[in-house]
Simulated scan of single mutants.
Amino acid sequence: MKPKYITLIIITFGLLLGISLLGKNQVSLQGNKELPPSQRKLWSDSSHRQIYPRTIQLIPQIQATKPWKIVFVSKDGLKGHQFHHPGNCRNSSWCSIWENAKQFGDSAGVKIELAYVHQNCAGIDECISTQVRLIDDLIAQDNIDGMIVGPRDSNLLVPVIEKAISNKIPVVIIDTPLNTTKTLTQVLVSDRKLGEEIGNWVVQQLKGEGKVLIINGPKNQYNASERKKGILSGLQTGNITILDIEETDWTKPEAKAIAKKWLKQFSDIDAIITVSGNLALGVLEEIKAQKREGILITSFDNYPEVKNAIVTGDISTTADSGLNSQGSLAVKVLVEYLENNQSFPSIVYAPKLELLTAEQLIQFHGSQKSKVKNQK
């Protein structure tokens, strides 16, 4: 064979090999498979474990070259933010999410501002419409470089979010998915998986059989619906009788009123399963008021008041959905886009999910105190 043909064959083989490797690299970055441990970029979420992005690689500590203005649109409203100041997010998960996002934004050198609905709304529909108006007003300011949004509805916020994007404002969605493909990305967790973990845990604690009640969030709201489906799936692993299921608008007074009714109606209750911290705390208040004992209470969220109730044994466990880390991860994504024009998968599953118990929390805080003591 002539030398020029041999050279041509070698070049062709090299090109084919390069294309093949490029395709594999694209799948590893954009597919749904986890990155191998050697490629994961780890960082702490100020709690008791490390988390990693499952579909992307990010610079652990990125520094902005411009003071980009990012607006964090909270899903919570007046009650969640009005009376809180830095370090005092006692009973609001969204206040804690905002604090983590703000802390990372400050360290990255960007200007991050909080936006939330400043008037109390009556019912979920009014809360959604007021959030739509809030975002519309932000778009009109014409001085925003990026937006992080916790949407109150997966469908009704689509038009205003797409309006922001058409006005050259990149948007990252957190917590509740939005039915659009136009966002920069959506940082989410599997609420159904967390609910299933709660259901399984209750079955294990009751040794396979018992009587339970479930307090859910709003009807047809995505997170509440997914958590409920997961809980019901987990409970099916045992011989569990579900005495009743009630829906709420996530408020503590509603949960307290429902618990009051149930405690009078049912003499034999093994567990009350709730889908948020506020609901669990409302149930706890009523159980204490009626001096009932031996009832397991489960929660979602991991803000301080819930954690304290777990440590004291008043709440049995909570599903840590990693909301705090969603906020900081959303800021990281947005800063990398603004700085480097980086593209991302349509969905980023941020945190590793788990349940928190008193034993875990006591062990974690004990280790933290030891670290502080050793540093001194």
Rank of each mutant, 00 (worst) to 15 (best):
V275E: 12
K182Q: 14
P345N: 05
P37F: 08
P253Y: 10
P37H: 08
S96I: 00
L16F: 10
Q63G: 05
A101V: 01
L178S: 07
K168V: 02
G150W: 02
Q368T: 09
S92I: 08
P345A: 06
K69N: 14
H118Y: 00
A164G: 00
Q205F: 00
V110F: 00
L206N: 09
D125T: 12
T241P: 00
Q375S: 13
R133N: 11
A289M: 14
G217S: 07
K24N: 14
L194E: 08
L21M: 14
E359F: 03
S346Q: 15
P304W: 11
T318L: 03
I19M: 14
V348P: 06
K288Y: 03
N200G: 07
L232A: 04
L178Q: 04
I128V: 12
V158A: 00
C127L: 07
E293R: 12
Q363D: 15
P151R: 08
V331D: 07
I112H: 02
A319N: 09
E113G: 00
K4Q: 13
P351K: 10
I10V: 13
Q141P: 00
L184T: 05
Q236V: 04
C121N: 12
V333D: 03
I51S: 12
A108P: 01
V132D: 08
L16C: 06
I169V: 12
Q205S: 09
K229F: 07
E113Q: 12
N143G: 01
V372Y: 08
N220K: 14
E285R: 09
I161P: 03
S107Y: 01
E354H: 15
C95W: 04
Y52D: 09
W98T: 06
A122Q: 07
I139L: 02
K256E: 15
I297N: 05
G322V: 07
M1E: 04
L243C: 08
S129H: 03
L194P: 04
C89E: 04
I242R: 05
G146C: 09
S367F: 06
Q26M: 13
T185V: 12
Y5T: 15
Q205D: 01
L17V: 15
G327D: 06
L263S: 03
C89H: 05
I287R: 09
S299E: 11
G14M: 12
I287V: 15
L279P: 01
K24M: 14
L188K: 05
N374Q: 14
Q39S: 07
A164K: 02
P253W: 09
N302V: 12
H81N: 10
N143H: 13
G31A: 05
T318M: 05
W250I: 01
